[in-house]
Write a protein that binds this DNA or RNA. Structure first.
Lengths: 226, 226
DNA sequence: GTCCAAGCGGACGATTGCGTCCACTTAAGA
DNA sequence: TCTTAAGTGGACGCAATCGTCCGCTTGGAC
């Protein structure tokens, strides 16, 4: 049989293979952040210091690479949900969850794009954990509503609305955390039953016009002026 | 000089040229709606029933084509602002404005993408009308705040936040007007000083999971599964 | 009807990205 | 140390898109 007779590592990978895989992931995150998830595979390979073949062996499709690159972030999201459920005050948990996920989207460049790309996903493997996440979130919503803090007509699917909208925002204005914080604050506030009208974070410092100033924005190709 | 001695039409274009230009614009809207604004120029030309050269003559860059294709929508936006300023109740005007623009983004496929693509824009030609639009909107905001209906800490730049977020949402969920309406309602509500807590439009009928169901979503290339 | 410049279409070379194939290198068990 | 299969790298063939060039067609003035 010699199934894995000569292999030492527990994951059945040779040491160099594991090392290269890791290097590819690091490079992928960097390149995706810089040029968007549509960046050429060869660029990722070069950045990682490996050949294209190596990259393709570890990640046969761009999709697999994207998923691999942001698996950690996805896990952080999952953890945030668990923590939210465990929080003593369900509204607190809810709020924390939304803020954590949005912060993640805001900070890890390229992650938002990966996030929406992964959205229509129901891959066999993910379907299960996804279903669980949904169930947990619904529970959280019910509890928060029962506590009276979350408006009764909030629907779990509204989370998707929030996250996708937020993705769009941070993708369009990559360098600006202020806008993201502002949006999240507005939304959380209208989710809250009691309109305590807490102070919002400061508005975007820029005027409406002078926004990204065409600084060769990554992702989302920007054709040259006429 | 014979500057335009033999030309009849007032815009200095031959009849067939003008006809073709119009056909290209119609085709561009259709194709952009179907395949996103990154669709090949040749596709637009074929759809219009003209050669690529003709397309390139009328619109030297993809950017010019996009701008041409959605100029009408942009004008509708501008008109909405004018109407909003003219409305007797400034809050009513404000609300109407946001809803009109968002409805436009929701209905005219491809327009959202064009919208965010055009955003960092300050082209000589547009700078002027843009500046005026900004000034007008700021006036509208001030009036609405003075009337007590719009929260005092709303900042004109928040409009950009709303529109970009909304663009992101409708781009990610192209066929679903419900999500868009829901987002707009949430946001407008948190802009309003008096939290009348009006009923929201019904939530997305879908569960969190079964959203676009990978139906070969247009724009935003979707690499094949592993 | 005649003429000619504006307008037209499609072929074409260039560029870019994809994914595979194959000969070479190396980790690691014996 | 020796062996060998796992791992590696980059050249290569293929496909898509871009934007231009050039010879043909046609609107419209006279």
């Amino acid at each position: 049989m010699a199934e894995s007779s000569r292999i030492t590592a527990r994951d059945g990978m040779r040491a160099d293979a594991r090392r290269n895989r890791e290097r590819v992931l690091v490079a992928a995150r960097a390149v995706f952040a810089e040029h968007g998830i549509d960046a050429p595979m060869a660029t990722v390979a070069r950045r990682a210091g490996v050949g294209v073949a190596t990259l393709y062996r570890h990640f046969p499709t761009r999709d697999a690479l994207v998923r691999g690159a942001f698996a950690q972030q996805m896990e952080t999201c999952a953890r945030a949900l668990t923590e939210a459920l465990a929080a003593p005050d369900p509204w607190q948990g809810f709020q924390q969850l939304v803020e954590t996920v949005c912060a993640l989207q805001r900070e890890e460049r390229g992650f938002p794009a990966a996030f929406v790309a992964a959205f229509p996903e129901s891959t066999s493997e993910h379907a299960q954990s996804r279903q669980r996440a949904e169930r947990d979130f619904t529970t959280l919503v019910r509890r928060a509503q029962a506590s009276g803090a979350l408006r009764a007509d909030f629907h779990p699917s509204d989370l998707a609305v929030v996250l996708l909208a937020h993705c769009g925002l941070v993708t369009a204005l990559p360098d600006d955390g202020a806008a993201s914080r502002r949006l999240v604050a507005y939304l959380l506030q209208s989710f809250r039953t009691d309109p305590a009208n807490k102070a919002l974070p400061p508005p975007t410092a820029l005027t409406l016009r002078s926004l990204p100033t065409a600084t060769d924005s990554p992702q989302g190709q920007r054709p040259p002026r006429a």
